[in-house]
Structures are given as structure tokens and as C-alpha cells.
Nucleic acid binder design. Structure first.
Lengths: 104, 104
DNA sequence: TTAAATATATCGCATGTCCTATACTTGCTG
DNA sequence: CAGCAAGTATAGGACATGCGATATATTTAA
């Protein structure tokens, strides 16, 4: 039916590429690892068809790079990516910070 | 070009309908007022072509109702909407909470 | 009354984010 | 070598979120 509303009444999609950048600002990771970190937080793991297009888009945008290491591709932030994620975090906190404040 | 990345390297769209529900959980408001509250937080005001379809979608979903009062249509959460927004806030904080923690 | 501002609403377009399904590569094991 | 599993990748579909443009009704100002 209207699949994307899981009992929340509203669409809770979004901010995937931002969350990926934020995770990579903590530690470099390969695709599957990133998906599992997101699963820990959101409760469900993004599928391959979700995560790899997002990584490709970020790479094309010059904020992450993927380095092939044997079986896996390890992604990390570029120096531009490091600057970008700082700005993104500021924007994110200004936009949604009080939602978090009010529920601790 | 790739319009939606404003120097953040990633797409910062998303969570509009959630943010609307959250705002309405504080105070009932009409469309323009909601747009201005979002502008205060995000830095730019969502246009009419963004905000009204979102309100319509939330109304169709049964989580908000719009009541015509003179010039404006005042929106408020339905009782289902009030329950939904609580669940949505929990999901949101579990998904993104640590991003706020690390930047206070 | 006419004009301007405010509020609501819709259309078309682009793109990100989700999914399922399919397929390829690599490394390991039998 | 053959087969399997893990990881990577793309195609195609659905939908929310953005925009600009356009339109209408109502209120306020000139």
C-alpha cells in the first residue's frame, strides 16, 4: 500500500547520505559495514540497492573515496568530505536539535 | 546542476512531514506559520509547492486535520497523529541521536 | 473600487531514498 | 578446479521532498 510510513504517520526516509558521511567521519568502512552500522541505529538494514547507489553518488560528488582492498571496497572521507560533513552536522543540529533535546 | 546539495556534499532533504508533525505537537498552526517555523530552523523557507502537498499527504494519512478559520486553514494533530509523532520521535532519536550528542 | 499582499493550492520536473530482483567478482573450501 | 558465500553493483519501480510557475480567494491598503 503506502509502504514508506511504518506506523509513524509520516515519511521517515531521508538523510541516508548524510548518515553515511557522519559514520565515515568516525571510521573508514566498507559497504556492508556501513549498512550494519545504520541497521543498529534505524532498526533495519538498508539493502544493497539502497546503499551502493548512495555511495556512488557521494563518490561522484568528491566527498568520499573507495579503495579496493581484496574482496571489499573501503570508503573514507576526502578532505573536502571532512569539511562538508562539519557543515552538514551544523545544519542538521540547527534544523532538528530541539527534537532531540526535548526527549532525553 | 545537482541542486539539492548546498555545500554539504550530500542531500539534506527529508523529514519534512516529520518536522511538521513535531511542530504541530507543540502548537496548532496554519500553513504559512509552519513554513516560517521551518525557515527559522533550516534557514530557508519551504515554498508553497513543498508545504501544501506535504500537509495534504498528512491529512490524507489521518494524522492531521485542517480547519478553515477565516482566511487561513489551521492544522492540528489528530489523536492518532499524537500517538504517531511519539513513535516517530523515538525512531528519530534512536537513528540520529548521537549526531547531536557529539556536537553540544 | 482597484491594487497589493497573504494564504492556499496544483502542476511539472529533478533527485534521493527505499525496495526487489538479478548479476558479477573475489576469496575460501572441498 | 568447482562451488559457495560475502561483498559489490545495476536495473526498475514507488514515493517524498525540493523547486519554479501558475492560479484562486480573501484581506488590507491606497
Amino acid at each position: 500500500m503506502h509502504g514508506t510510513r511504518g506506523g509513524y504517520g509520516c515519511d521517515m526516509r531521508g538523510m541516508l547520505s548524510f548518515q553515511i558521511m557522519w559514520l565515515l567521519s568516525k571510521k573508514e568502512m566498507h559497504g556492508e559495514e556501513i549498512a550494519e552500522e545504520i541497521a543498529k541505529r534505524r532498526g533495519s538494514k538498508p539493502k544493497a540497492g539502497t546503499i551502493y547507489p548512495a555511495l556512488k553518488s557521494l563518490e561522484e560528488n568528491g566527498v568520499i573515496t573507495g579503495e579496493k582492498k581484496g574482496k571489499t571496497v573501503v570508503y573514507s572521507l576526502t578532505s573536502e568530505g571532512k569539511r562538508s560533513v562539519k557543515r552538514a552536522v551544523i545544519y542538521f543540529c540547527r534544523s532538528f536539535g530541539e527534537i532531540f533535546e526535548g526527549s532525553s
